[in-house]
Amino acid sequence: MSATLDIVPLQDWINTNGKPLMIAGPCSAETEEQVWETVTQIAKEGYAHVIRAGVWKPRTRPGSFEGMGEAALPWLQAVKKETGLPVAVEVATPEHIELALKYGVDILWIGARTTVNPFNVQEIADALKGVDVPVLVKNPVNPDVALWIGAFERLQNAGLKKLAAIHRGFSNMQETKYRNSPMWQIALELKRQVPNLPLIGDPSHMAGKRAYLAELTQRFLDLDYDGLIIETHRDPDKAWSDASQQLTPAALGEMLRQLQVREPDSADTLYHSHMDELRAKIDNIDRELLEVLAARMAIVEKMGEYKRDNSVTIFQIDRWKQVHASRAEMAKKLGLYSDLVEDLYRLIHEASIRKQTEVMNSVSQA
């Protein structure tokens, strides 16, 4: 399945001279002095194309710093005039949009907590009808590609064409070293379904800790993301929100200089020759894998028939536990990623249950 969206190419509304888009700035606009010092330091470093700052901060629980609101917008207006850099802020209500546009904010973004609610997204889309402004949409907090695409479709229906996605990671119940699980497959599936949609990585909210920023940022670049949005603060440890995931503008500049920006392709004919050869081998192996999988499903179907004829239930928990454990051990010995094999066998098991259910139903219907 794919979605057709009429999107203006990124380079047509923001000139990055062929480099990945770089959006940088503090998590929150705290004081006029803090905004001024942080942004002027960013401008001095020279890596940013856009300045970001949180003006309205949706917090998980009340009592936390929720942003300075309208009072912060003149500060951003002033640094925009001083540096010449466009400014981006998060909006969550029609009132936010009205105020942001009043003070000359150039780019809007919709946060993860807003994206998850279609009613909120529709209100924002309705408020933006007739407005020619770029809008970036963060992934919803839960891993739902359809919900993410739906937000873009609502904005598109309102006439907006300067759109881009921000991948900031997803909430889940599993323990990971990151604040939000990357779930790379979700973002890549979005790109597969909407190939012309620019994709921007947000390592700050994904990492949650500055120690992981470099590795995640490099991963975004290696996956050919169109840009990055990274939080930076004049004095990160004293930041009023998300202190642990911010860098100073100078430290961010140093990190970016150490990263490698790779090309999406190579002009080397020998490279293409080797790649064609390796891809042909993969195609053959995939064909063999599918043939083996088909043979496995044929056995599963036969097992379903025996269970049916002997009035045995389909799901057998002890057998599933044994398969799950033994395949994981086999994978470990073969040097395969354990999560790959676990996910693969979970899908195979679900398909096996479905196949045996079909066998059971075929008799009951007859």
Score class of each variant (00 low, 15 high):
59 R>N: 09
320 W>A: 15
299 I>C: 09
169 G>K: 02
146 A>M: 11
51 I>P: 09
301 E>T: 13
182 P>M: 09
230 I>K: 00
127 A>W: 01
314 I>G: 10
70 E>L: 02
122 Q>M: 10
57 K>E: 07
89 V>T: 14
355 K>F: 04
79 V>T: 13
310 N>W: 11
173 M>Y: 12
268 D>H: 07
304 G>A: 07
285 I>A: 13
45 E>P: 03
228 L>W: 07
290 L>I: 12
24 A>S: 15
44 K>L: 08
176 T>K: 04
92 A>R: 03
177 K>V: 14
119 F>H: 12
302 K>L: 13
318 D>N: 13
326 S>M: 11
76 L>T: 06
15 N>A: 13
180 N>A: 12
278 L>W: 14
263 E>P: 00
179 R>H: 08
236 P>F: 10
310 N>S: 13
23 I>W: 03
264 P>E: 07
100 A>D: 05
191 K>N: 06
234 R>M: 12
189 E>Y: 00
281 K>Y: 12
48 A>I: 03
131 V>Q: 15
252 L>C: 06
267 A>K: 11
224 D>C: 08
338 S>E: 14
97 I>R: 03
259 L>Q: 06
340 L>V: 11
227 G>F: 09
100 A>K: 04
133 V>Y: 07
8 V>Q: 11
23 I>K: 10
51 I>T: 07
233 H>Y: 11
176 T>L: 03
60 T>G: 01
176 T>D: 04
287 R>I: 09
21 L>C: 03
135 V>M: 04
351 A>L: 14
5 L>P: 05
309 D>K: 12
220 F>L: 06
32 E>R: 15
58 P>G: 05
342 E>D: 11
99 L>R: 14
171 S>H: 15
114 T>M: 00
291 E>K: 14
345 Y>R: 06
16 T>S: 00
108 L>N: 01
153 E>Y: 01
17 N>V: 01
165 A>L: 01
190 L>T: 03
136 L>K: 00
37 E>R: 15
296 R>N: 13
339 D>T: 14
89 V>I: 15
79 V>I: 13
294 A>C: 04
340 L>F: 13
289 L>G: 14
9 P>V: 06
90 E>N: 09
229 I>F: 05
348 I>F: 13
181 S>N: 15
3 A>E: 08
25 G>E: 09
86 P>F: 06
201 G>N: 10
115 T>R: 03
235 D>C: 09
83 T>R: 00
228 L>R: 07
35 V>K: 07
297 M>V: 02
207 A>R: 01
56 W>H: 11
145 V>D: 03
23 I>R: 05
143 P>H: 05
364 S>I: 10
217 T>K: 04
256 L>H: 04
99 L>M: 13
240 W>K: 15
256 L>E: 03
261 V>P: 00
43 A>S: 12
194 V>S: 01
298 A>Q: 12
9 P>W: 05
